[in-house]
Measured scan of single mutants.
Amino acid sequence: MKGKVVSYLAAKKYGFIQGDDGESYFLHFSELLDKKDEGKLVKGSMVHFDPTPTPKGLAAKAISLPLE
């Protein structure tokens, strides 16, 4: 699924993505496929991810940034 980063707290390594389906997904650095892309996780960045339901809500897994 595609989505847009709505927040990312680099110090805490987490944030949120708004998916194309309108839902909010929890984003964690550990799910970023290329850790070098962390600096690109800023508000408004477009990402691809696997939407995954968890006991705490919806989460983004296997997060990647589109090729530039």
Rank of each mutant, 00 (worst) to 15 (best):
E31Y: 09
K43P: 14
E38M: 06
K61N: 06
A59G: 05
P66F: 15
F29G: 04
K40C: 10
V42P: 02
Y14A: 04
E38F: 05
K40N: 08
Y25I: 02
G44Q: 04
K40H: 09
P66L: 15
Q18E: 11
L67M: 13
S30R: 11
D20A: 11
S24I: 15
S30D: 10
V42H: 12
M1F: 06
P51A: 10
H48T: 14
F26Q: 03
A62L: 09
S30N: 13
F26Y: 09
K43M: 09
V5H: 01
D21M: 03
L67H: 12
G44H: 05
G22M: 06
E38D: 04
L67A: 13
I63K: 01
G39H: 14
L32Q: 00
E31H: 07
H28S: 12
A60W: 00
E68Q: 13
G3V: 02
A60D: 00
G22T: 04
D37C: 10
G57R: 04
P55Y: 09
F26C: 04
K61L: 09
S24M: 15
L27M: 12
L41Y: 02
F49R: 02
P66R: 12
G39C: 14
L58K: 10
T52K: 13
L9K: 12
G57D: 01
A59C: 11
L65Y: 05
K61C: 10
K43H: 10
D20G: 05
M1Y: 05
K43E: 08
V47L: 05
Y25H: 01
T54V: 05
S45I: 15
G3I: 02
H48I: 15
D20E: 13
Y25K: 00
F29V: 12
P51K: 06
A10I: 12
A11H: 13
S45T: 15
K2P: 05
L9G: 08
D20P: 06
A59T: 11
P51I: 09
V47F: 02
P55A: 10
S30G: 07
Y8I: 08
M46F: 10
K13H: 10
K35Q: 09
L41M: 05
Y25S: 00
S24Y: 14
F29R: 09
T54E: 05
F49T: 00
F26T: 03
A59R: 15
P53L: 14
V47P: 01
D21K: 03
G57Y: 04
S64I: 11
P66Q: 14
A60S: 03
L65P: 04
S7V: 15
G22P: 01
G39A: 14
E38C: 05
Y25F: 03
V6P: 02
V47R: 00
K2A: 11
M46G: 06
G15F: 03
K2G: 10
P55Q: 09
L33W: 05
K40G: 07
G39M: 13
A11C: 12
T54F: 05
K12T: 11
S45G: 08
V5Y: 02
A62M: 10
L32H: 02
E31G: 06
S45V: 15
Y8N: 02
G22L: 05
P66M: 15
K56F: 12
F29Q: 07
M1V: 06
Y14F: 10
G57P: 03
